[in-house]
Nucleic acid binder design. Sequence first.
DNA 1: ATATCGATTATCT
DNA 2: GATAATCGATATG
Length: 213
Amino acid sequence: MLTAKYGHMRAVPRDFYGRDVVTVSRELLGKVLVRQEGRRVRAGRIVEVEAYLGIDDPAAHSAAGKTARNFVLFGPPGRAYIYFIYGNHYCLNFSCEPDGKAGGVLIRALEPLVGLELMAEARGIEGDLTKLSQRRSLTSGPGRLAEAFDITRERDNDKNVTLAKSDLRVVDDGFRPEKIAVTPRIGITKAADEQLRFVVAGNAFVSGKAFSR
DNA sequence: ATATCGATTATCT
DNA sequence: GATAATCGATATG
C-alpha cells in the first residue's frame, strides 16, 4: 500500500544537510516530506525551494546573528526552522551547513503524493481533488504547505527531520528531477536579484501562476 | 489574466 | 511603531 511505502522509507541523513546551502537546496528537489501520525500519513514531493545563506545574505533571517527566533539556523543540520509571517502563515525551512554555521532552505512547494484528503481538511478546502487546480491549491506555496501538513512553530520548530521516528521527516524514494530551473527568490526586498530559487522544471505544483488548461 | 489590498502578530529598531 | 521568506478576496480589463 502506498502509505506504507512512504511511511517506512529511510530518512535522508544528517550529513546530507551538513553541506553548503546551495548544494542542499538543489538536491532537496525530488525528496519527499512526510508527516506521520500513527496510521495517518501525508507525503509530498519537494518541487520548489529557496536557499538562504548564513550571515552574508541580507535576505536571510540569520543575517544579523543568532536570536531567540532564528537559533535553529545556527544549530545542527537537518532541523526544521519554522517562522511565522504576516500574522497569518508558518513557513518551513531546514537548517544546513555544519553545526555552528548558519544557513537554511525554505520549502516553497510540494507535489501532493499521499494523504490528500488530510491536507484538504487541514487547509479547509472542500473541492474535487481529481482537479489539478484543487490539488495545486493544497501545497503550492510555503504558507499553504505548512498549513496542509499542520506545521507550526510550537509543534515543529527545531525538530530533527532526519530521524525515522520523527513525525515530520524527509525521505528519498529515488526520484530525481530531469531538469532544475533557477530564478530569483520570491517576496523579498533585500538581495532580490540573487539566483537562489530552485524549481523542478515544468512541474505543475510550483507556486505562482496556475497552468492554463 | 493581472493588479491591488486587507488580514494579523512576532520580531526588531 | 514598522516591517515581514504570504494568501485569498475583490476589482478591473
